[in-house]
Amino acid sequence: MGFKLLSKLLVYLTASIMAIASPLAFSVDSSGEYPTVSEIPVGEVRLYQIADGVWSHIATQSFDGAVYPSNGLIVRDGDELLLIDTAWGAKNTAALLAEIEKQIGLPVTRAVSTHFHDDRVGGVDVLRAAGVATYASPSTRRLAEVEGNEIPTHSLEGLSSSGDAVRFGPVELFYPGAAHSTDNLIVYVPSASVLYGGCAIYELSRTSAGNVADADLAEWPTSIERIQQHYPEAQFVIPGHGLPGGLDLLKHTTNVVKAHTNRSVVE
């Protein structure tokens, strides 16, 4: 069995187990497998329904001669939608809004960016022009300005110390501490036991640490421990890039980060 097929099978099995364990909360999309990078042309966006009122959005972007996937989250909030992270750029984010209108038909009224990198804030200006209120932590807003990236308009308070959590509509926002970046936030959907790890969490097929220019490698494993301790009931975990899975993604990420750190020390 090929690795790609095995990865998709694991996603399907995880979703099936969740649907059985929580039949009222989960209505997993039966329309197909989780979209992969090879299936999404740059400039297009796919939506994948995880649970009743919960979707991931998947886009792709060219970077350094390669094409990478990027995940975000959409959560229903009454007759409105909360968006977590842009679709990595203005063109993708405009396509995301169009796809949401086509498939869901509810307005996106608020959006949260989970850290300051372009795959999370690139497209904020498109959201703002569409009347979406954009939010991020003060740290993310400051770092985005320093980096020359787009800056969300509103500040999220109460997320300055490791372990801080605040309720934001249908989700809980959690600051686990520094990891992929010093400002990275985690998003949890309690009604569906869905954990969105953003770039602080890796997919299972990833074996290298990737972009760690703004990471705190020493603190990252401790931050992941905080996530595990705060959300032990999480059933569906979405990484910032690639295929979702279960809580095993947290341990896998820790292993990859520690291996990278150990290699760096040896070198």
Results as ranks from 00 to 15, higher is better:
A95E: 11
V194K: 01
R167N: 10
E101L: 08
S62A: 09
L243M: 14
V45D: 04
N71K: 04
S208R: 09
D118I: 05
T153Y: 12
G197C: 06
V132A: 07
V194Y: 05
T14Q: 07
A144R: 08
L249W: 03
S7Q: 11
N255D: 10
F63N: 15
I74C: 02
S38R: 10
D64F: 14
V67D: 15
G72S: 03
V189E: 02
P221A: 09
A133S: 10
W220L: 02
L83P: 01
G169V: 05
T207D: 15
T109I: 11
Y188Q: 00
R226Q: 08
A66S: 12
P221I: 11
N255S: 09
D118W: 04
P41C: 04
L173I: 14
P232F: 11
V54T: 06
R76A: 09
Q229M: 13
L204T: 10
V126C: 02
K102R: 13
T86H: 00
D216C: 04
M18Y: 14
A98L: 14
Y175C: 03
L204G: 14
H154V: 10
G78S: 08
L97K: 00
I224E: 01
P107A: 13
W55D: 00
L13F: 11
Y231V: 03
S264N: 10
A59C: 06
R46L: 11
V187A: 11
K251D: 14
R141G: 03
R263A: 14
T36N: 15
E267H: 11
G246K: 12
L243H: 15
E99Q: 14
G72N: 02
T261D: 10
G32H: 14
L73A: 05
N262A: 11
V146Y: 13
L243C: 08
A25S: 11
M1R: 03
A178V: 07
T182P: 14
I58K: 06
V212D: 11
K251A: 10
G89M: 00
N184T: 02
Q49F: 09
L13K: 11
A87Y: 02
D216A: 08
T14K: 06
V42T: 12
A51I: 07
G245H: 03
S113V: 05
A95K: 14
R128K: 12
S223E: 03
I186M: 06
V112E: 05
A59L: 05
A66G: 12
G123P: 04
L24V: 13
E233L: 11
M1F: 04
L247V: 14
G89H: 00
A179H: 05
L156M: 09
K8F: 15
G198F: 04
E33Y: 07
L83E: 00
L97P: 03
A90L: 07
P176V: 01
A87H: 00
A129W: 09
W220K: 01
L185Q: 02
L127M: 04
Y196R: 02
S162H: 11
S223G: 03
I100R: 01
A165V: 13
S161C: 06
G123A: 03
R263T: 11
K8Y: 15
N149T: 09
A234F: 03
Q61A: 13
P138D: 08
V146D: 14
Y135W: 08
W88H: 00
D248Y: 11
H117F: 00
G245E: 01
T182D: 12
I224N: 04
E44A: 11
S137N: 09
E33Q: 08
I151K: 08
T182F: 15
